[in-house]
Design a protein around this nucleic acid. Structure first.
Lengths: 237, 237
DNA sequence: AGAATAGTGTCTATCAGACATTATTTG
DNA sequence: CAAATAATGTCTGATAGACACTATTCT
């Protein structure tokens, strides 16, 4: 197939977030094929639409999960994926007319080590390092929309839970929020909100404690058991 | 062209809202062509993708505007349109694999008379009348998502402004909010919020008063002049 | 005067931001 | 005990819900 022509008019692109070292990071990959070969881009791929009848092709969510697995090596089940928006400006892709459905995804810090630095990919700190001006296609625009969506929803505990370890201390989850919003909340006020999450039954204490250095050990918490992960949103496929 | 085969793998569908008679209504059209001929559906159409290279086709937003104009007869400029989500479950369309990008739209009550009851279309009250179980394709799902999006954003004055006349009384805009949320807010508490909109410079008094029956006339308000209408969101097309 | 709707004010609970203090561990 | 981080509590201002009264018009 001619690599300069898109194999499908519909694609998916992922804005994959993680929090490490107190920074909100996004996963970018170096494009292996033209156009924009060698430039940083969001992980994405064409959606297999089938052949307009007989072969049924893959669902949008399945395509997003496939891209997630291809680039991270993680099981598709461990992917928290939510649809963002469709981007389809005529002329956004030099290969032809391609509509892309963008998704945002969250990865826990514990899983990052499993990903490693394989292939041509890298985590970029949203605040500083992202080479915004040099992203392929309209990916800068998509990434900005993804960051907006994340920031808009980070107040909801369930989003935050996907960006910290399965069990966490109050300080850890607060640090995650700070990284996303890029501002420090007062620890005491944050704890008060956290207390409400406890009262509402959103979190429960996990066994064990955690302590670093020579200080008082912190209690460990976890989200109260729901079915693990995966928001079932309407845009499922 | 074979009407049983979709002309394009990408479509747009519109969830068009209006408030009349104290009810939140949505515009449905009777499908003229198979499949689902004769059933109620959201207004929508295939997106012209061009020919994958030479002809550039139309932007997603342009397609949504075109559908808006086709079905309402209103100028595309008067369309408040915001992207909702893409729906692309394999098998959602019996004609083949079609991804649809859904938009939600708001129409002021003053414009409703211009639309009339042309063609095969009708306004249905969300609460009661919508024949949910009998909508074509996955339009019930799309409509539900659209209603959710509207309810989630109705607290923001700018959304509410698009569902009332260009100039309105406090009672009128409160009635619109009540219709959308399907619950009555206390008039005095609503007025207090409205006072804050005045203080923030979101609304200003318009000339004239309005009075019905034998009661005290009400002041008339309007949004402070911004460029008329049209949210410029990132998903522009 | 009476009916009807417009507009203003009060009391209270909840929540966010700013800020001080006590508690528990290691060295 | 000193250092370091965990955890709790107080004061204040903004906002939402419940509720009572005054104002202006028409009949």
């Amino acid at each position: 197939m001619d690599p300069a022509v898109s194999p499908s008019p519909v694609a998916v692109d992922l804005v994959v977030f993680a929090v490490t070292d107190g920074d909100l990071k996004v996963l970018l990959v170096r494009r292996q094929a033209p156009p924009f070969r060698g430039t940083w881009a969001l992980p994405g791929d064409a959606v297999d639409l089938g052949d307009m009848g007989r072969r049924s092709g893959e669902d949008l969510r399945a395509a997003a999960q496939r891209v997630f697995r291809t680039h991270t090596g993680l099981a598709r089940d461990s992917a928290w994926l939510q649809q963002l928006l469709a981007f389809g400006r005529s002329g956004r892709d030099p290969r032809g007319r391609v509509i892309t459905v963008a998704w945002w995804s969250l990865i826990r810090p514990e899983l990052l080590s499993l990903i490693g630095t394989r292939n041509q990919m890298e985590w970029f700190s949203i605040g500083e390092e992202v080479p915004w001006m040099r992203l392929a296609l309209d990916h800068a625009e998509i990434l900005a929309a993804g960051a907006d969506a994340l920031r808009a929803r980070v107040e909801q505990p369930d989003v935050l839970f996907e960006l910290v370890p399965q069990s966490f201390t109050v300080a850890e989850i607060q640090a995650a929020e700070s990284a996303i919003l890029d501002r420090t909340t007062d620890a005491r006020n944050f704890r008060r909100r956290f207390q409400r999450w406890i009262d509402a039954g959103l979190v429960e204490q996990a066994p064990g404690k955690r302590h670093l250095g020579r200080s008082r050990p912190a209690k460990v918490w976890r989200p109260t058991c729901r079915v693990p992960g995966h928001p079932e949103d309407r845009s499922a496929g």
